[in-house]
């Protein structure tokens, strides 16, 4: 395996809070999704990889070298941060121009690269406007532009889809795929599985500062399909609904309140089908139903509960 990023017993804590706990992983080239809920340790991992943080324990190597205070290594890294950090008064052009200069390009080359990347991101028209006047999507595009304009070989994108409208998202998906096809390593963090699925089939699952799994997206999907799901049904007839659903063999528990019924099912697809059939046959009347835990958080908790620390 061509290892691009290697973490060995990597830990990072802030005071008493452990942000990353004993992570050991070897990440190959290509597009890799870093998937986890907010606060899971995704950004901490990325910042350690960029050398913005010093590991509290262990080490992290990018292309075989420590990144912290290593200019040679930093010239090969690109980073799109999650948060908006800008000097608001300056223009997008100027922001990118100075970062290009700091990347080691002379004035002429910096200008050429900036104009090229602004054109690629369809920002030419607004490039001399102050960043303060940019929409969320435009700010995101500027952040992405600075991450790739110096042609890095390893790119870290921390929640890059935040704030982008659907067409900008499509454009970004396309761009990530192009960069991936050029042989670049892209670590793409997100808390939304389907976003990651659009660009890669390889993901790292991170939760509570630990790597839970490193594998293919479809295997994660299977876990999501299989793990017991909590469904909340709003109805005026909770007792009737309770009686009808109690006979479904997939439902492991049922409870009801004045206007809602809560169930846990091991096979959500079959259960939803069964509920729909009951509605069509007029056996029950319901106002709405929803999955109360259909998010990554519940999948991660499920993964922890089935004791799967590494590997799928």
């Amino acid at each position: 395996m061509d290892c691009q990023i290697e973490a060995v017993d990597l830990s990072k804590w802030f005071g008493e809070v452990v942000a990353l706990n004993n992570v050991s992983i070897q990440i190959p080239s290509g597009i890799i999704g870093l998937l986890g809920p907010n606060g899971a340790g995704k950004s901490t991992f990325i910042k350690l990889a960029l050398g913005l943080y010093k590991p509290s324990k262990g080490k992290i190597l990018i292309l075989g070298e420590k990144p912290r205070n290593n200019p040679r290594m930093l010239s090969q890294l690109g980073y799109c941060p999650e948060m908006d950090h800008f000097v608001e008064e300056i223009s997008g052009y100027e922001f990118l121009y100075w970062l290009a200069r700091y990347s080691g390009f002379d004035a002429k080359e910096a200008k050429r690269r900036v104009l090229e990347i602004l054109d690629k991101f369809k920002m030419t028209e607004k490039m001399y406007d102050p960043i303060a006047t940019y929409s969320k999507g435009m700010r995101q595009r500027i952040k992405l532009a600075q991450a790739i304009m110096h042609d890095p070989s390893v790119i870290f994108l921390d929640e890059p889809m935040n704030g982008l409208d659907p067409s900008a998202r499509e454009e970004l998906f396309r761009l990530i795929n192009i960069l991936g096809s050029q042989g670049k390593t892209i670590l793409f963090s997100s808390h939304v599985l389907h976003e990651v699925e659009r660009v890669t089939d390889t993901v790292i699952l991170i939760y509570n500062g630990r790597i839970l799994a490193f594998g293919k997206v479809r295997e994660i999907r299977d876990l999501i399909q299989n793990h017991p799901r909590k469904v909340v049904i709003k109805t005026f007839e909770p007792k009737k609904v309770y009686n009808q659903l109690s006979i479904d063999p997939n439902i492991t528990s049922v409870s009801f309140d004045t206007d809602e019924v809560t169930i846990h099912t091991t096979d959500p697809t079959s259960t939803f089908k069964y509920i729909n059939e009951l509605i069509i046959e007029d056996k029950i009347s319901i106002l709405s139903y929803r999955c109360a835990d259909e998010d990554l958080q519940s999948v991660f908790q499920y993964l922890i509960s089935i004791h799967m620390p590494k590997g799928l």
Binding site: L52, Y79, H85, Y102
Partner: peptide
């Protein structure tokens, strides 16, 4: 301080520039 507080300093710290 402006660079540090607005965190624009992280762009600089991820650039191959001598501190």
């Amino acid at each position: 301080r402006e660079e540090v507080d607005s965190l624009t300093i992280i762009y600089l710290l991820t650039r191959p520039v001598s501190k």
